[in-house]
Amino acid sequence: MARENACDLVITDVNMPRMDGITLVSELRGLPHYRLTPLLLLTTESSQERKLEGKRAGATGWIVKPFNPEQLLATMARVL
């Protein structure tokens, strides 16, 4: 789906069965129309190592669950 369509913003979970969020971010960054798209990771994990992995993969930001809806919207506004 991502290969065919561009979107303005992606928020993805990290722990997913077939492909984890960090790998997804890394793969999306390889697609021309996703080079500059804000990609946010939303997860229960909060360790520095994992955040660094996300950053290296090309993520725009890291949001730890439980999230505050107002904060999430503010973050989205900032990156769009």
Binding site: G54, T60, G61, W62, I63, V64, F67, N68, P69
Partner: peptide, 10 residues
């Protein structure tokens, strides 16, 4: 506890 304050923009 205020929830949802752990947001980091890289």
């Amino acid at each position: 506890d205020p929830v949802g304050n752990d947001i980091e923009l890289f």
